[in-house]
């Protein structure tokens, strides 16, 4: 078990990061901390993907010196997926930050529970 964990330390770290991010996103009450948790969670996934996609001793998949043997290169797809994932993560973070700004300017707090209590007292019923 331990030997396996040490041999696959990159994946183990990725899973631990994912767990830290997940719990932060779920249990932190501060909105900014929640967002940081979300980013850690995504980073964990990207680390996992990137480390699985890399094979030691192989090169980036750009043909140099006429070597066309696929065994000389790594698969470019995982790196592409990581890039796509980062783009998605950035845009989601941007939207969430803008929502946070909007909530803060209305309720003057970042604590989600406090905001919830404050919003209950509003009379915006339709």
């Amino acid at each position: 078990m331990i030997v396996n964990l040490i041999a696959n330390y990159e994946e183990a770290v990725a899973v631990i990061l994912f767990g830290i991010g997940l719990t932060t996103l779920l249990f932190q009450r501060n909105l900014i901390k929640k967002l940081i948790g979300m980013n850690i969670m995504d980073t964990g996934t990207f680390l996992f993907l990137a480390s699985m996609g890399y094979i030691r001793g192989r090169k980036a998949p750009i043909i140099v010196n006429g070597v066309t043997d696929p065994a000389a290169y790594i698969n470019p797809v995982p790196a592409g997926l990581v890039l796509t994932g980062i783009v998605v993560s950035v845009s989601v973070t941007a939207i969430m930050l803008s929502l946070t700004v909007r909530l803060y300017s209305r309720y003057h707090t970042l604590d989600l529970d406090d905001i919830y209590v404050l919003s209950k007292h509003q009379t915006e019923d339709r």
Binding site: F48, M96, T100, R106, S119
Partner: peptide, 26 residues
């Protein structure tokens, strides 16, 4: 205010879901 708050809570649950889905796909 309430839709913004609802949107934040909606997004938090959804981001959690997306993160898990991505991990599953990976």
């Amino acid at each position: 205010g309430r839709t913004t708050l609802a949107a934040v809570r909606y997004m938090i649950m959804n981001l959690l879901g997306s993160g898990l889905f991505l991990l599953g796909v990976v």
